[in-house]
Design a binder for these strands. Structure first.
Lengths: 145, 145
DNA sequence: CATGAAATTTACTCACT
DNA sequence: AGTGAGTAAATTTCATG
């Protein structure tokens, strides 16, 4: 799985616009369209490129509430346990084990504060969760990446 | 800017695969390809869809270190100030004003711990930053969204 | 082995209904 | 919103260094 400089350029261009044509990309990296396609196919096969997605305004589609929750877990909790819990909850859009006071940081997104609170309750009901500290997002300072 | 049920479906399909064709999408939502294109064009014009991007494995492209930083700011700090600071720092991939103890939460990503530390130093040098509390990401529990 | 050129198939996009 | 025509892009095949 080696990624050369041209691959990096192609990845960067696709991150900017995932729908640009192979010919357009090729013009910028000095390759033909088929050559670009073959590299993209390879990068996808090697899971360097996981997929292509639309960047959507969360507010416009009704996801207005967001929250970060620090998880303080019981002594024997494993990352795998936390990960499987995170996957069970639909509101979870990100989850990380972290150094510091907390054991994990979970990013929740929901339609409104009420739905967020529900999601938080369900999270807190997980047997390995000792306590939580939450931060409700008041405003997003950067456009959705 | 009203979004009907079909728009929602189209958005969901594009989030799954931003490179699928208008005809493919149309088949799933019972519309012709031009009809889908017109809706997508409208959604883009209205900024409901902000763009299309490739989902890349951060490790594969050399971004192995990640961190969340809680910002404690001086009394008169505005969200706008924090936002403009966030945009100045390349390592910042997310930034939010939050309720709770901290004033803001900043998500940093860099090539390694050293680069992360540098980014943190620069953040801490912002005049409105009183103090910070940071959480280094030990592991990502969900695939990159 | 990766590339480019040519050929084929598919998709996009426009005008019109 | 659909249809049909013309254009552009994707994808396959093949020959080359």
């Amino acid at each position: 799985m080696r990624i050369d400089d041209v691959d990096q350029q192609i990845i960067a261009l696709l991150q900017e616009d995932a729908r640009s044509s192979f010919a357009e990309i090729g013009a910028k990296v000095s390759l033909s369209a088929p050559a670009v396609k073959r590299r993209v196919d390879r990068l996808r096969a090697e899971k360097v490129i996981r997929g292509f997605t639309a960047v959507v305004d969360p507010v416009a589609v009704g996801w207005t509430a967001e929250m970060f929750v620090e998880l303080f877990c019981t002594g024997r909790t494993t990352p795998v346990q936390i990960a499987s819990a995170a996957r069970r909850h639909a509101a979870v859009v990100g989850a990380y084990t972290v150094s510091g006071e907390a054991d994990a940081l979970v990013h929740l997104r929901a339609a409104d504060i009420a739905a967020l609170e529900q999601a938080l309750e369900k999270l807190r009901a997980e047997p390995f969760v000792r306590s939580t500290r939450s931060m409700v997002v008041l405003s997003r300072l950067l456009p959705t990446t």
